[in-house]
Amino acid sequence: MTTQTQILRSKARKRAKTADKVATVVIIVFALSIVAILLGLIGFIMFRGLGHISWHFLTSNPQTIREGGGIGPPLFNSLYLLVLTMIITIPLGLGGGIYMSEYAKPGKITSFIRLVVEVLSSFPSIVIGLFGLLVFVNTFELGFSLLAGALALTIFNLPLMVRITEQAFAGVPREQKEAGLALGLSKWKIITSIMLPVAIPSLVTGTILAAGRVFGEAAALLFTSGMTTPPLNFSDWNPLHPRSPLNPLRPAETLATHIWKVNSEGLAPDAIQIAAGASAVLVIMVLLFNLFARWGGRTLYRYMTASKRMN
């Protein structure tokens, strides 16, 4: 009887060991295949695109029908649109995040706001684009313009900014706040002068990562900033002039919308190469945003805490 149980037990153990080995191998194979797929894709983009990137490609105008088009204006538009978006998003996101972290009291209203942030962050970006078309482009009569695009991207990015800010402030040690309170500072003074400097490193990291996301967004822009760029005069930097690259009321196709347009309706014979080059530029930019975000956050943290001269 006992020996039988023992035999059964050792059989079960053997089976368990085999199952363990098989499962481990399966997990490793799956995981490695993902890594291979993803690395392969990035490699593919780089392989296809890098050869096409040149100074000329980065600076010249796109061509509709002829060969040799570049991505100068779309690249500029992407960067400029990002700046406009961040100018609108950062103050709003900071305010919202600070409210959630420092002012909101637990209760119905706060959980409602949390739900709002969650809903807003899960909206398909094409729906936000449609909303932008209806409200910013048509109702506000901004037309297809950088400003309409920036507003749409603000909606797209705001929930993330709020969450980043809330988390950054929640990460500030409570003792810092208490020290400020005991000194008789107003709450707002504590937030802006005591907590903000402590929160800055994670704010910077989060914001740059969010910026990377904004930089690659296209669906929210098709119907807000438009799919064309008027001829620009790169020597005119007066934002009020219609030909000026800085004019926020002109339509602007970005790098991401340009890739989409070239792929879906590109007539130029080298459309695929252009899309590949532009995709490679886009991926490189996102990589740079990532690296910069990590590096920036770390450096700032070190700067804030280490024995460097500061004021």
């Binding site: 003792e175 810092q176 020290a179 005591i194 400097p197 805490t305």
Partner: peptide
């Protein structure tokens, strides 16, 4: 307080 809590300043 128990734990020193200087501001992240000079």
């Amino acid at each position: 307080w128990q734990r020193p809590n200087p501001f992240y300043k000079s």
